[in-house]
């Protein structure tokens, strides 16, 4: 028999640390939630997980048909679009899903204790699994369009970590707001659409560099995160220390702010139905 654990609300640590420890204790729950997200999403479809790969491919084909004449200056435009698209899809889907998972999770927070961040964290991780799957069609297209694949690809895990941290940070931030203000759920897709057109996903970087003398890019945190991915996958060059510094600062900053804000507000979630 192990001694029963004692809970004492007078001896709680800082909420950010408390939440982190709780999350670690509930790590099996995170695994189950990620598994549920992935298994449940494809269970009733014939092609199953293949959709994760076909989806960005389909969007890319449409974009290429529509825009390749307009943006003919871009070298191997399909690869350009696809690199941008899968990063954006990861960010877009994971953060939007975080909101709906928190809304769904609210009914559970009313009844049992669980680490409040578990739904956001598991959603972001499930999206990351999808991201990894969508690398398969990406490399297919890279090879077909004869993009040089070099040793810079070894840096891919770091680039993915940046994307993960950034998405998690924004996901925590936006889902906290959504708990207190339900209209955030309606507002966020509009913001995302605007954000997408201000990012070099379909539109070439060169064009955006001329918009408002480049400030659209400079003030766009997603651009720095995507930049690293494009440099190592699509352009095959090593990012400069400055590139890394910006991207890391933004991703880690987003995560830190998101985590602190979320854990500070987490105790009051159960009061807001």
């Amino acid at each position: 028999m192990t001694a029963p654990t004692i809970y004492d609300s007078a001896k709680r640590k800082h909420p950010a640390i408390e939440e982190l420890l709780a999350l670690f204790k509930y790590r099996d729950l995170i695994y189950q939630l990620v598994r549920r997200d992935i298994v449940a999403r494809y269970k009733r479809s014939v092609l199953g997980v293949a959709w994760t790969m076909l989806n960005p491919l389909g969007t890319m084909i449409i974009m290429v048909i529509v825009f390749s004449q307009v943006f003919s200056t871009v070298q191997s435009y399909p690869a350009y679009v696809l690199t941008g698209l899968i990063c954006w899809t990861m960010f877009n889907q994971s953060t939007s899903m975080s909101i709906s998972m928190m809304v769904w999770g609210a009914q559970l927070f009313q009844q049992i204790y669980l680490p409040r961040s578990s739904f956001v964290v598991s959603t972001i991780l499930a999206s990351m699994v999808n991201f990894v799957l969508s690398l398969v069609p990406l490399f297919l297209i890279l090879i077909i369009t004869r993009v040089q694949l070099g040793i810079t690809l070894l840096l891919l895990p770091f680039s993915m970590l940046l994307l993960l941290m950034f998405s998690l940070g924004v996901g925590l931030l936006i889902s906290t707001l959504a708990v207190f203000f339900p209209d955030v759920e309606q507002m966020y897709p509009v913001i995302l659409t605007a954000w997408m057109y201000m990012s070099p996903i379909i539109i070439p970087v060169e064009i955006l560099q001329n918009v408002l003398s480049g400030w659209v890019l400079r003030l766009n945190p997603f651009y720095y995160v995507l930049n690293i991915f494009r440099l190592i996958v699509y352009q095959g060059v090593f990012p400069t220390p400055k590139d890394w510094l910006y991207a890391l600062g933004i991703s880690f900053g987003a995560l830190l702010i998101g985590w602190l804000f979320f854990s500070k507000k987490a105790d009051s979630f159960a009061y807001h139905v």
Partner: peptide, 12 residues
Amino acid sequence: VLIPATGRLWIK
């Protein structure tokens, strides 16, 4: 589930 703003909860 509800964290009280004031007071203390102790459980074994």
